Amino acid sequence: MSPATLDTKLAALAGASPAQLREQWLEVTRRPLPRVSPGLLRLALAWELQARVSGGLPRRVSQKLEQMAAAKTSTRDIQPGMRLVREWNGKVHVVTIAEDGAIHWNDRAWKSLSEVARTITGTRWSGPAFFGLKTKAGRAA
């Protein structure tokens, strides 16, 4: 869908009847109709249409929203300047987060905390959980 077509579809939502909105929801999403007001359905349709053009939310944002909705765990984001320290099998491991957000451990840059945790332990770990950034909801981090 081109940006011009998107603009036309978004403008048409303003004058659409509730029946037209419901029909368009089913056509666009192929998901069950949510039980919301026509105004909210109009906004949801607008988001769906725009997400198709722009690709939607980044994976990390979607994961964070799902985690918040489940309310079971909470994960602090890494910040430039952080030093994460973890003892594993009698050895202390220090990970630093550079100003550009790069993750450094053992004189090397890593793609993720999980990659570092996996290398340290030899098993699959959630990096945020391994370094204490992911906690059960209700606990202080």
Rank of each mutant, 00 (worst) to 15 (best):
V92W: 08
T121I: 07
H93A: 13
P3L: 13
G55I: 11
A137Y: 10
I120D: 00
L43T: 09
I120E: 00
L21M: 06
R139G: 02
L33K: 11
P38N: 05
R59T: 13
D100I: 09
L65Y: 03
V95F: 00
A117V: 04
R30G: 06
S74G: 08
A71S: 12
R139E: 14
R124S: 13
G81Q: 01
V95L: 10
L10N: 07
G56W: 01
V61T: 10
I103P: 02
E48L: 05
I103E: 00
G39Q: 10
V94M: 12
A109V: 15
R31M: 15
R86V: 06
I120T: 02
L10C: 10
N89D: 15
L21E: 03
G90D: 02
P38C: 07
M1P: 07
R83T: 14
L84E: 01
N89T: 10
V28Y: 01
A98E: 15
D107W: 02
A98D: 14
K9D: 01
P80L: 08
I103N: 00
A98F: 08
K72S: 13
V85H: 03
G101Y: 02
L113N: 01
A44Y: 05
R108S: 10
A4V: 13
L57S: 07
A14C: 04
D77A: 14
Q50Y: 04
D77F: 06
P80N: 08
A12K: 09
I97K: 02
V28P: 00
G138P: 06
A51N: 12
M82V: 08
R22S: 08
A14N: 11
L40A: 11
Q67M: 15
M82C: 04
A70L: 15
S112L: 10
K9S: 02
E48S: 06
E48F: 03
T75G: 07
L113C: 03
H104M: 14
L113R: 01
R118F: 06
T29E: 07
G56V: 09
A16N: 06
V61H: 10
A11E: 05
G90T: 04
L13T: 00
K136I: 12
I78R: 07
A4R: 13
D107C: 04
E99K: 15
Q50L: 15
A109T: 15
G81A: 07
R60I: 14
L84N: 01
I103Q: 00
R35I: 09
Q20E: 12
G122R: 12
Q20H: 07
Q50K: 13
S112R: 08
T5Y: 00
P3E: 03
R124G: 02
A98W: 06
D100C: 03
G122D: 07
R83E: 11
L84F: 01
Q24R: 14
G101E: 03
R124K: 12
V36T: 11
E87F: 06
A69D: 09
N89S: 14
R31Q: 15
L113E: 04
R35C: 04
M1S: 11
G55D: 04
L33G: 04
W105R: 05
K72Y: 10
L113T: 04
N89A: 15
P128I: 08
G39C: 04
K111Y: 09
